[in-house]
Amino acid sequence: MENSQCTVVDAKAAFTTAREKALIEAAQSGDKQAYHQIYDAYVGRVHALSYRLTGDHALAEDATQEVFIQLWRKLGNYNHKSKFSTWLHSVTANITVSYMRKQRGWFQRMFNIEGSAAEQFHAEASTGEVDLESYIVRLPERARMVFVLHAIEGYRHEEIASMLNMAVGSSKAQFHRAKQLLKEWMGYDND
């Protein structure tokens, strides 16, 4: 019985993989309809990562568009050696980080006020059911990006440091800062 269940699951996975491979190959050949199907399948994942990185709905949607436009141009670089979703996450993280550098609000860039939102949130933090997503997007920008890339996406601090153009020590410090803020907001400040 167990064996037959495994076979069904394996067959489904194989079918999905084969279908995805066919769609990617069609899109690589210029088939826009196939690419639209890839978009439909992955837009939620790309947008989720972009939203967590940017902490802003409008920026995340713009970054998602940017990802899929560049992906169309660079799809030929994908060689099927790694999982498509893994490659797409890497592309999404890089493009979103790059996009944020260009699109960040003028005041934030000039006056570096990234901490203010977090401080304000501290005052508003409430007890009750913890919504981690809403806490993450309220983290200060650099702490949020490091936290998302390390804790959710599984990047090493060396990779994050290179991606965000910061020292490895800074990446670790920002991760610690993010965890401390989350700890406080989740009601563990007296631990």
Partner: peptide
């Protein structure tokens, strides 16, 4: 955490 988050508008 959910893996997917749909955008609010058609992109």
């Amino acid at each position: 955490l959910p893996r997917n988050k749909a955008p609010n508008r058609d992109l």
